[in-house]
Design a protein around this nucleic acid. Structure first.
Lengths: 200, 200
DNA sequence: TCGGTAGGTTACCCCGAGTAAGTTACGAGC
DNA sequence: GCTCGTAACTTACTCGGGGTAACCTACCGA
């Protein structure tokens, strides 16, 4: 089998087994066996167990970026931007429940460079949101814009995890919830209302 | 050395080394050596490497709960509740930068039961927030209240991670940022304004 | 002074990550 | 149609680290 095809197959199998059993509990022998190939082949193509994990994350990240980019193209207002981006994200998660668990939970702790790869996904998201804020309110404090983007990403990610436990909550409702909480605050700052200080 | 004292010492050392190098890269021999004791003692007291990690998380969780409880006692409005709770959380993180990284990043992926322990921390937080929402607006849809609590916790946690990379941002400013984004939206729902639906 | 136990050690097993060396399939060039 | 090169693959190993069995020893109370 040609290399590219074999690599794709390995990623698919690895993602599945990692998601099933967790990164630590999965052995390279097991993955190799289920792929129908011997262990050194995995090392030939991915270098290490960690490399294989990173490959899985990277592929998911690329897919998420493409879907999000397609979703937000042509949005006319910051609200529409955010709403479309959030919906795309929740839909992605919904389609990839198992590998999402892998990305968020398994990968995060196991290996420093996998951590970086996961951070890369968040970076994509915060960059996107930061860009929206900046384009609509260019004079906004960059530090604050960054903080807002982080808040939105954190809220979204957490709600995605929660959504897994709540089968009745789909992408559309999740999007509504997040927008309901964050939009009034974000919108107020885009209008340059001052940060509410601590009440006396 | 008496058991309780030895256990505390082991937790302190383990937390430090885990935070430094990551869970996977740390060996039990190394921890044992730095404690000044032999490996089987660690197993005697914590059962496994995973058990040791869970011990670390559990201790931090207890401390966080106590500090938060003390901070929010006597708050008079939901806004004050939230603000005080957030501040207590950010201050806790600020004092425990290294072990926080361990809790959030390392633990999450390594081991299923450590994952549960970390979820327990979040549960504490969401329960607290859910209780606030419920006490001020008892007729609020429970599912929605849960979603809001998750959103707040996610936003806060993410901003805590971001804060680590931004030395100029302290607990007070972080609290202001989170409140600025979430409070208008949460407040509106406490007043029973309807969920904003998708714009036409 | 002697037994029980809390606190501790040495020396080992074994699984699984990672590797060295070798094997087969196959297309390109003569 | 033979051979050379290389891509795809395997067998058989090393070694580090989690986990354990068995043994030790200092101290305290009867």
């Amino acid at each position: 089998m040609p290399k590219a095809q074999r690599m794709a197959q390995m990623l698919t199998v690895a993602e599945e087994i990692f998601a099933e059993q967790g990164y630590l509990a999965t052995s390279m022998d097991e993955i190799a066996e289920r792929v129908g190939v011997s262990k050194p082949m995995l090392y030939e193509y991915f270098g290490s167990k960690e490399g294989l994990l990173i490959g899985c994350i990277h592929r998911a990240r690329t897919e998420l970026r493409e879907k999000t980019a397609a979703a937000i193209a042509g949005a006319g207002s910051p609200e529409e931007f955010l709403r479309r981006g959030l919906l795309a994200f929740f839909e992605f998660i919904d389609e990839h429940r198992r590998s999402w668990a892998l990305l968020r939970q398994e990968a995060a702790v196991a290996v420093p460079s996998a951590q970086e790869e996961v951070e890369g996904i968040r970076q994509q998201q915060t960059d996107m949101i930061g860009a929206v804020l900046a384009s609509f309110t260019p004079e906004m404090d960059p530090l604050e814009a960054e903080a807002f983007a982080e808040i939105v990403v954190g809220a979204t990610e957490r709600l995605a995890v929660w959504m897994e436990r709540r089968p009745t909550v789909g992408p559309a409702l999740a999007t509504d919830y997040v927008m309901a909480v964050i939009w009034p605050g974000v919108s107020a700052r885009l209008m340059k209302q001052p940060l509410p200080a601590q009440p006396a």
